[in-house]
Nucleic acid binder design. Structure first.
Lengths: 250, 250
DNA sequence: GGAAGATTATGATTGATTTTGAATGAATTT
DNA sequence: AAATTCATTCAAAATCAATCATAATCTTCC
């Protein structure tokens, strides 16, 4: 990888995240720590970024953000920690499906560690972000649902039926022992069902706020996918674990 | 292989990847390292590229380019007046195709006047914006091309082949009397070709800076579409009008 | 039309320059 | 006080510019 390519990757990361850790750049570029330190030095001299302890930040960053040194070291955001956990599950060379929705979207930055991925997503927003990360992406066709910017309908389901995934990552509007995983829109539920049944392993990303929420359409029973969530009340967790595999983050 | 052929290969690689390694050019051209170094020297002297350690990059390197969001707002006046003109052509109840690219993207705000549209686009960015405007949208499936965020490949072309449009609006990297409408990527050219041939009326949106620019792949002859552009030198305009229908805005 | 000479392009070799990754100890954070 | 992160140094690796001999192409002249 050429110097200029690394510089572009670093600046792209900053555009997207406003901040970047040096350690995260290592797998992203394949370069050594020393080289990346030199890159950060160079870019700082050109006033393209500002170095901070542990990495670098955008030169135009807002003052009202939480202390940057904290933000970089601690991952307070629940969605982000769930996403990071999920992203670490992905291996080189896999074909994975990403559902629409912000929970799943947060995985994308953590996919860069794996190489030679093929990502299939029915979200045009996810697709755009995946392109920013230079991750090979395939989009099934379909009708665009305005509210969620997800592709749905017969074209989508027909296309997805022909695919097979190593792992599928889905969001949900609610999960409950009685009702399973539910979502408001039957058409989106169809998409989720197919992705789920065509994947070796399926994961649902859902923070604690989705516990015992029930929406209109069930797209899966609890035991059809692994639930990745954050800290839940001990009682609920115990109950859930009798029905399905649960990964509790942090 | 002739010198000129090698130069074309090098420039094509740059158009596609924005950056190229000298080592990658060796198998691509079959020439020796020394020869390719000389090629890069020559092309740099003609200001066709910029040499960097290990290879070369486009003169307008990525991070010097205005960010995508800025890029939309700069040049607004010309692009926007062209887009407004194009948008006014759209009637109620029509099915239209929107190409990827900022010129075409600028049409979207002006589509809201027409009712009951169905828009088909191969750009995930356009799709997202169309959703914001609550315009009914269909996206053909396909491989996502990272640099332009356009969907390309056999799935895309196959899907589009089954459709028929009232009007198609396309961007171009250049237009010229000799070379017609051209674009760097052959796969994107395929998509444009099909959209064009499956549409009752086809329009190319291009500001004056595209005049007499020639890119790698021709996707249409001048007379296969109506050109919507802004003020051009009178001579060029007269010449163009002998070859195709031209709409001059402003 | 063809041969001799001049010009140009090519590929290999050389040593100089630049970049890289690892190691060390100092500085910083928690 | 422990753990990271940082700056500095150094040797190895990669890339570069310059040179030279050879091959290809073009001129010129017979």
């Amino acid at each position: 990888m050429l110097t200029e390519e690394r510089h572009q990757i670093i600046l792209k990361q900053l555009q997207l995240h406003n901040i970047v850790k040096l350690q995260d750049l290592i797998p992203l570029t394949g370069a050594s720590e020393s080289t990346l330190r030199r890159d950060l030095q160079d870019l700082e001299e050109c006033h393209k970024l500002q170095r901070i302890y542990g990495g670098a930040q955008n030169i135009l960053s807002y003052h009202d953000e939480p202390a940057l040194s904290q933000k970089i070291s601690t991952n307070t955001d629940e969605k982000d920690s769930i996403a990071r956990y999920a992203g670490d599950l992905v291996q080189n060379n896999e074909v994975i499906f990403l559902d629409a929705g912000t929970s799943v979207q947060a995985i994308i930055p953590y996919l860069s560690k794996a190489t030679d991925l093929l990502v299939v997503t029915n979200s045009v927003v996810n697709a755009s972000i995946l392109a920013d990360y230079q991750i090979e992406t395939f989009v099934p066709g379909g009708k665009l649902k305005a509210s969620t910017k997800a592709l749905v309908g017969s074209t989508t389901t027909k296309t997805l039926t022909a695919f097979h995934f190593d792992k599928a990552f889905l969001g949900t509007n609610g999960f409950s022992v009685k009702a399973g995983y539910t979502t408001p829109d039957p058409e989106e539920a169809d998409t989720k069902k197919i992705a789920l049944s065509n994947s070796n392993e399926s994961y649902i990303l859902a923070d604690g706020s989705k516990l015992e929420q029930v929406s209109f359409t069930r797209f899966a029973n609890l035991d059809e996918a692994t639930l990745i969530t954050n800290e839940l009340p001990v009682k609920s967790l115990e109950l859930l674990k009798t029905h399905t595999k649960v990964m509790e983050v942090k």
